[in-house]
Nucleic acid binder design. Structure first.
Lengths: 235, 235
DNA sequence: ACCTGAACACCGTTCAAGT
DNA sequence: ACCTGAACACCGTTCAAGT
C-alpha cells in the first residue's frame, strides 16, 4: 500500500546516540568523546552522526538535558509555596545528586540552561515557586541564579579534588596554613559534602533573614510586578 | 673566560609565552589557543613552545596562576582577624573582579588551585584568617571551599548568559514563568551582579549565625548585627 | 640551549556518492 | 532517508636535525 517498503530500519536514532554518548562520558570523560569514537561505539562511521545532530555540541547538550530531566522538582508544586526554604533545600540536594552521578558532564551543565528544555523547566520551577512564596520577581530571579552558582560551583570545582595528593607540594615556608592540605585528597568526599552542607545552610539562613525583612505587602500572595530593588545595600 | 659566547639571545621565554597566551585568551577565548596559533603569535614555530613548557595545559595553568596572583589578600593580614566577615566580603569582591576581567579563563581557574602557587596562596590566606578569627579548622576549610564554589560558580555559569536572547525559545505553554527570560540576556550584568550580591550577603549572614553559635572557646565577638536575629531553623 | 621541519595519530565537519 | 569513504583544515606532541 505504501510507496516502496523501507529496505531496512535506520541504524541510528537521536536516543541511541545520546545514550551512547552519556555512557562514554561517564566512563571515560568528556575528552573521550570524539565523533569518530562515538560513532565507532555505535557501529557506524563518523559522519553518520550528522544525519541526526547538526554539531557535536548539540549531542553534548542533549546528554546534559537528560541529566537535568532527572532533577526532582516535585517539592515546588506543594500548593501554597509557603515553605520555600524546605523546597529550596530539598531541590538543592536533588540537583547536587544528579550532578554527582555524572561529574564529567558538569562543565556542560554549568554553562546554563541555554535552549535545553529540561534545564529551562528547572529554572521555571524555582522562579515560579519563589514568586508564589512571596518573593518579589527580581529577588526570585536572583535566588535561582545564586543557587545555581553554588550548586554547579560545588560540583565543578570539587574543592578537595583541586589539591594534589602530594605532601611535597605544600612547603610550610610558602603556605604556613596548608600543612594538612595533601590529606584533602583522601578526605575529598567528606570535605566536599561538609562544605556543601555548611554553605547551603548559610545560604538558606541568610535568605530567611532577607525574607523576614521584606515589606509586608509582598508576602503570602503573588507579588506585583513592581519588584523591589536588587540586593539591598551590599557591596 | 667562559666557554664560547652565546650566538644570540633566545627568542622565547616562559613569561613571553604566558603573556601572549593571556592576551589571546582574553581576545578570542580558550578555543583560540592552539600551540600552532600561539607560536605564530610569538613569531616561532609550534614545537618551540615545548622547550619552555611540557604541555599546553601547563601554559594554561601558568596563565591562570597569573590571574590568581592579582587577587587582593591584604584584608586577611589585618592583625587580630577580628572582622572575618568584612575580610571575607572584600576578598570575595576582589576575587570576582579578577575573574570578571578574564572570563574565558574561569573554566581553568574553577578546576581548583592544583599546584598553582598563587592559587595555593589564596587558599592559605583564607584558611589562616578564619582559624585566627576563631573558626575551628574543619569549619575554616569548609568556608574556603564554599566561598570558592559560589564565586567561581557565579563567574562560570554567569546566570543570564545561560539564557538565549530569543523570545521564541520560551513558549509560555511550556514554561509559564519564563515570559521575560529573553530579557535576561540584555540585563545580564545587572542580574549577575544582583544575584552575586544577594548570595554573598546571605552566605555571610548565615555564616555569622553559625559563628555566633560556636562553643564559647571559639571567641571573637565579630558577629555582625544581622546575625543576632532569629530565622535560622535547621535545614 | 633553543629552534626547525617533518611526521604521527588524531580532530570536527562537508560532500559527492551510493542504497 | 540514511550511511559511506574521501577530503579539508585543523589539532597536541615527538623527534632527528640544525645552530
Amino acid at each position: 500500500m505504501c510507496r516502496m517498503a523501507r529496505p531496512r530500519k535506520p541504524l541510528l536514532s537521536r536516543d541511541r546516540i545520546v545514550a551512547a554518548a552519556g555512557s562514554l562520558i561517564d566512563a571515560e570523560g568528556l575528552e573521550a568523546v570524539s565523533t569518530r569514537r562515538l560513532a565507532a561505539e555505535l557501529g557506524v562511521s563518523g559522519p553518520s552522526l550528522y544525519n541526526h545532530f547538526r554539531t557535536k555540541d548539540e549531542i553534548l547538550e542533549a546528554v546534559a538535558d537528560a541529566v537535568s530531566a532527572r532533577v526532582d522538582l516535585s517539592m515546588f508544586d506543594a500548593s501554597d509555596g509557603r515553605d520555600w526554604r524546605t523546597a529550596l533545600h530539598d531541590w538543592a540536594l536533588s540537583y547536587r545528586a544528579a550532578l554527582a552521578d555524572h561529574p564529567h558532564l558538569v562543565p556542560v551543565l554549568a554553562r546554563g540552561p541555554g535552549r535545553r528544555p529540561a534545564g529551562l523547566r528547572v529554572a521555571d520551577a524555582v522562579f515560579g515557586a519563589m514568586v508564589r512564596a512571596g518573593w518579589p520577581p527580581a529577588q526570585a530571579t536572583h535566588i535561582g541564579a545564586l543557587m545555581r552558582y553554588f550548586i554547579t560551583g560545588s560540583a565543578l570545582g570539587s574543592f578537595a579534588r583541586g589539591f594534589v595528593d602530594d605532601e611535597s607540594a605544600y612547603d610550610p615556608a610558602d603556605y604556613p596554613h596548608l600543612g594538612q592540605a595533601h590529606l584533602l585528597a583522601e578526605r575529598r568526599e567528606q570535605v566536599d559534602r561538609g562544605a556543601f552542607e555548611t554553605g547551603l545552610r548559610a545560604l538558606l539562613d541568610g535568605l530567611a533573614l532577607q525574607y523576614a525583612a521584606l515589606a509586608p505587602g509582598g508576602r503570602g500572595a503573588a507579588a506585583t510586578g513592581a519588584a523591589a530593588r536588587g540586593g539591598g545595600q551590599g557591596g
